[in-house]
Design a protein around this nucleic acid. Sequence first.
DNA 1: TACGTACTTAGAGCCCACTCTAAGCAAGCC
DNA 2: GGCTTGCTTAGAGTGGGCTCTAAGTACGTA
Lengths: 164, 164
Amino acid sequence: MSLAHASQPVPDEEVGRFTISEVVEKTGLTAHTLRWYERIGLMPQVGREAPRSGGGQAGRRRYSERDLAFLEFVGKLRLTGMPVADMIRYAELARAGEGTIDERRQILVDHRAEVRERIADLTACLLVLDYKVEHYEQLCGVFETTRAAGAEDVLVRAECGDGR
Amino acid sequence: MSLAHASQPVPDEEVGRFTISEVVEKTGLTAHTLRWYERIGLMPQVGREAPRSGGGQAGRRRYSERDLAFLEFVGKLRLTGMPVADMIRYAELARAGEGTIDERRQILVDHRAEVRERIADLTACLLVLDYKVEHYEQLCGVFETTRAAGAEDVLVRAECGDGR
DNA sequence: TACGTACTTAGAGCCCACTCTAAGCAAGCC
DNA sequence: GGCTTGCTTAGAGTGGGCTCTAAGTACGTA
């Protein structure tokens, strides 16, 4: 990206080449959701085809590669549980320019900490699940070999802590 | 737990010792939620104090250690995103006895696979966040030292993929 | 007696992130 | 012309997991 290139508006870069259907395919989001994202300010205004008749329609959306990159990032944030309101905040800051870099970074740092914590939580729970599954597998073995022993039945319940 | 002990109803074990307020404290759930859990069949019927006057009240709940253990497990399942309907299913199977061990195990095996996948997803997204945060931190450095260079400004936008 | 804690019922309410509606218009293609 | 794809608006609807309501009763304690 040369300086000369960067300092001039570039139509083929401002107006992308992907229709909303194509973006639906690529992202897994619905057209409804994509329009919604624009409406709530999460997504910047997407470039449009010029309407041929100059009538009352706004023209069809044409998403750029950059739009797609942003949607991919949004998908990641969504997957990690960031509320839409926070994503909107982040996007607004991004649009406000380079003076907001620190704040943007802080949003991501905070969110990253939450994701780390969530991974830790899930990992701890996974250990419990592992233990339970392992225990069931052992009890399936014990159960089959000592089917007549009622005591084992009671132990199954007590050990598994499954309620009554 | 001796055989003689196991084969007889034990009142002090059937009727626990924790009031609902104490369980609220221990679990972080609300009394409303605890009652709801019973109502929807997730929680087995909790033992009760005998009402003094024999009137129309059911008596106060008295949760046992086993009840608490089950609630702890439910909390883990909840934290890992298992839908309440699935938890109910699991609890019903547990109450149905030892003939359901295989099915119970399968529920947990399936769920465990989901948790693993979720951890993997989060971990992948965490890498993206790490990259972004790192990048912002570098750009804060670059930005401060070359504030007059407009090209860096554009690079910030392009590299961060932050939308417009 | 007053207050705090707990009980019951059925269902309404809340929050979040979509998801869908309703109704009509536009444009391209066969 | 018919079909497909896409446009707009404001807001209602959905699903999940609680959370709260409404109204009265019970019981223990100060």
